[in-house]
Computed example of a mutant assay.
Amino acid sequence: MSDNFRLLSQSLLSEDWGKLTKYDFELRLRDGSWQRQSREVYDRGNGATCLLHNLDRDTVLLTRQFRLPALLNGGLTELVETPAGLLEGAEPAERMRLELMEETGYAVSALTHLFDLYMSPGSVSEYLAFFTGEYRDADRVGDGGGDREEGEDIAVLEIGLSHALAMIEAGVIRDAKTVILLQRFALLRSASA
């Protein structure tokens, strides 16, 4: 793994939707000394997310759904987000296309991969592959709304880009992946203007 890391032990604490493992290890500090540490890491797999934009109307497609952690830590009953999903062994762009169909009802073939980011690297192993794409009315081939069997009840929102950016400032959009994609899109757009 690394010359600055020595794994001493690991123990599985829980394995349900994801896997929670406790690691005991030694880490070489900058001064050359070794320090023993213990950390818990949650692994639920990697994922993908995408911001779809309609050039003609200057709108974006977002979703709104219940998120238990946001309710427990902040009292939010729903979050406004970009569509996203776990890779579950699939190639990121292909999984993203399937998630877009499932969550929004839009079949979009051309996606642009932007980057892969760790969203909470202090305790979660997951990284997200970030994408953008364009959508048109003709791309809507289903209702979206998510998969009821997976407990999803997703509302599809078509919002003007400027309104979506204002929703960040107003504290309505509080999901990190969504903020990253919206602000990156706005920066690229202003740079090309």
Results as ranks from 00 to 15, higher is better:
T77P: 08
Y118K: 08
T77S: 09
L51Y: 02
A129G: 02
L100I: 15
R140F: 11
D143P: 05
G146S: 06
E103R: 08
L52H: 03
E99C: 07
E149Y: 01
R136T: 09
F131C: 00
S120R: 12
E103T: 04
T77M: 10
L79E: 06
Q65L: 10
Q65I: 07
D58L: 06
T77D: 10
S109W: 13
V141C: 13
P92K: 02
G74D: 03
G89L: 00
A84N: 13
M96E: 05
T59Y: 11
G105R: 12
E94W: 03
Q65N: 13
L55W: 09
Y106M: 07
G142E: 13
L79R: 10
R148C: 08
M101H: 15
G122L: 05
L87M: 12
E149T: 12
G89M: 02
D58N: 12
L111Q: 05
L100C: 04
T132N: 13
P92M: 01
D143C: 02
D56M: 09
A138Q: 11
Q65S: 14
H113N: 07
L72R: 09
G145K: 05
A90Q: 12
L79S: 05
F131W: 03
C50W: 03
G122H: 11
E88T: 02
D56E: 14
Q65K: 12
V60M: 06
